[in-house]
């Protein structure tokens, strides 16, 4: 893994009126790494992700994503990232191929490339039986796997995953992580949020956000050792609860 930094955040502050959603965040993400972005509800994760995706401007601080500035070069940022969330992923009344065609088209890919790559993709995912069905007729687990593949279809530098595995059965959940590992192996940086703490342990490094601040950031193993616990679940509980009490 190279140590080239693909996301650099320094003293990021985002305020909504008097409310400070992100309070001096400083962290970086290395190229090709799987970065876990953990935190309780309302800790400020979503706000930070929106800024990193170029959807909202920071109040102050330095933010660079894929080498582009989050204040001025948001269009360039958007061209170099992929995004997927549990809530929004694919159009339900289109088939998988039509969805890919649409997203590929947005990113300016030629019809030929789209066709070639999607055929490879369907074969690799063993997706042939669902190819001509509408998304809404496809089981949730398969849908999520397809949504991820669509998010990295244009070969972005970074892919943002916002709770991608919520409600998915345990086997499909692991197949989904296989896909994440593959993408990381191909050099795509993965930035992921999740409520499943076992998934936090699959990340190369993880940060835990509490009340708008990053409470800690390290490899899962180091975090577990540091707080003298046996799992990330306990680390998370410890950090989030202590901050709540203050």
């Amino acid at each position: 893994m190279s140590q080239e930094r693909i996301i650099e955040v320094e003293n990021l502050v985002k305020k909504f009126g008097n409310f400070v959603a992100n309070d001096h965040l400083t962290f970086h993400v290395n190229k090709g790494e799987i970065f876990g972005f953990l935190g309780a509800n309302g800790a400020g994760k979503t706000t930070a992700i929106r800024i990193l995706c170029g959807l909202s401007a920071p109040t102050s601080g330095k933010v660079s994503v894929a080498g582009f500035d989050a204040y001025k070069q948001t269009e360039k940022i958007k061209r170099n990232i992929g995004y997927m969330s549990q809530k929004f992923s694919l159009y339900e009344d289109l088939t998988p191929f039509e969805n890919i065609q649409f997203y590929g088209g947005i990113y300016g890919m030629s019809a030929k490339v789209i066709k070639e790559r999607s055929e490879k993709l369907f074969k690799r995912l063993e997706f042939e039986e669902f190819k001509n069905k509408l998304i809404k007729e496809i089981p949730l687990g398969w849908r999520q796997k397809l949504a991820f593949s669509v998010a990295v279809f244009h070969q972005p530098k970074i892919v943002f995953l916002d709770e991608p595995t919520g409600g998915v059965d345990p086997i499909t959940r692991r197949q989904f992580w296989d896909l994440i590992y593959q993408a990381a192996n191909d050099g795509i940086t993965v930035f992921v949020t999740t409520h499943y703490m076992d998934e936090a342990e699959y990340c190369n490094r993880a940060s835990i956000m509490v009340d708008g601040r990053i409470a800690d950031l390290d490899t899962p193993l180091n975090l577990i050792k540091k707080y003298n616990t046996t799992s990330m679940d306990e680390v998370f509980y410890l950090l989030a609860r202590n901050m709540n009490k203050q």
Binding site: A40, G166, F236, Y237
Partner: peptide, 10 residues
């Protein structure tokens, strides 16, 4: 508890 963080869940 769906979509609720680990602390609130406990």
């Amino acid at each position: 508890t769906t979509g609720v963080d680990a602390v609130s869940r406990k």
